[in-house]
Design a protein around this nucleic acid. Structure first.
Lengths: 216, 216
DNA sequence: TAGATTGTTAATCGATTAACAATC
DNA sequence: TAGATTGTTAATCGATTAACAATC
């Protein structure tokens, strides 16, 4: 029988890393068992929602006891694919690209950075954090040769559409995109966007609402 | 009468910047009028949803005609508070902090960066992009003296809780937080989180689902 | 066993989509 | 005027919360 279970909603997936983080915190403090209501206190989600979320993937708890923290975290590890590794490149060796190259946590999550790409001749041939900076011309060739799974796109907006088109043509598996563009992607590529500017506008909206609302 | 309209959902607020972006694109291409269905093509949201979203804030369109692109964008500008400016500091002068200091678009959205803060004596007293790097000890004093509205937190996780506590005690108005921690904030501060690591785990999940699903 | 807490069903709530009258 | 497209109400869909039987 196929294991294609009922599709899990995006909202659930976005909460799993937060459960994971909280579990790691309590495990470091020596906690062995945790109930959904304790996890609720830590994360701010309701106990009911936490149980619902987890039961999308199977019953990891025990009635009357709760969840074994280490086991539950291991299950979430597996659900999130943290046991996989992905050959990863960064496109755009600017400050954001280098900041990401430098983040060890990403590597711990299985995203193994191999190289950065840029068009600036000043940067090409040099190294950033011991990763080579390669000419953008060689993108397709490199992806093919080194079996790259994931590209992190940190180029300026005006280049982003073009870069992403090229990545899709190379059959890249995943794109972590930082450029503020709307992407129409085919089925066979996974895209996750970080919309920094939109997040800031959201902050701006709430600031205005709370502090700068003109009274009529 | 109070202008406290029915609370607008977070999902709507998150879509507004995307409408804004698309409007800017078409305006640059000389487009004057745009219908909800054209905007739908550009953004991927349904025309119906776009009309619903906009009508949270008033009827900006004209039956039989559509929306005047420039006017609609101006309205969204106003809704998002893009006409306000906020005195802003960055806490954590690492790579991510400097990357943000360098992004001109943030300034265009009204977040005027004044300074960076760090604990590293190597950095204190120097400049990053012509912004001074100041000792973390002087945080409270600086916020008070220079009327800081918003703090961007890019410190490592282990310092984040402490930094954010201090910010809240100073009555900061807004926090743009990059640290992967759960924050319990009082009513009088607006917090917007960027969860880079969680986003990456979400990518990992979908990659696993699409490409690495073991068949039983 | 009694108490606790899960797993799961049912009820509620909210967000999205569909439909269409109003009207430019 | 006829055609187009909004604004808005109603219908649908999905996600969250509540409740409680199952069971450790």
């Amino acid at each position: 029988m196929s294991s294609k279970v009922n599709k899990v909603s995006e909202a659930v997936i976005k909460r799993l890393p937060i459960y994971h983080r909280s579990l790691t915190d309590v495990i470091e403090n020596g906690v062995e068992r945790i109930s959904s209501s304790e996890l609720s206190e830590l994360t701010g989600f309701t106990a009911s929602q936490i149980r619902q979320d987890l039961n999308n993937f199977g019953g990891f708890g025990q009635q009357g006891y709760g969840y074994k923290a280490v086991d539950l975290r291991a299950q979430i590890d597996k659900i999130l694919g943290m046991d996989h590794t992905y050959n990863t490149i960064i496109i755009g060796a600017g400050r954001l690209g280098s900041a990401i190259a430098n983040y060890s946590e990403f590597r711990e999550n299985g995203f193994n950075i191999q190289a950065l790409f840029d068009v600036d001749p000043e940067k090409i041939g040099k190294e950033i954090d011991s990763f080579p900076v390669i000419s953008g011309d060689r993108l397709e060739e490199y992806i093919e040769t080194f079996n790259i799974d994931v590209a992190i796109v940190t180029v300026p907006r005006e280049y982003a559409t073009d870069v992403i088109d090229r990545l899709i043509k190379c059959n890249i598996k995943g794109i972590w995109n930082f450029a503020p563009i709307v992407i129409s992607a085919p089925e066979n590529v996974v895209i996750e966007n970080i919309r920094l500017n939109d997040s800031l506008l959201s902050l701006s909206y709430h600031l205005k609402e709370k502090f700068f609302k003109e009274v009529e």
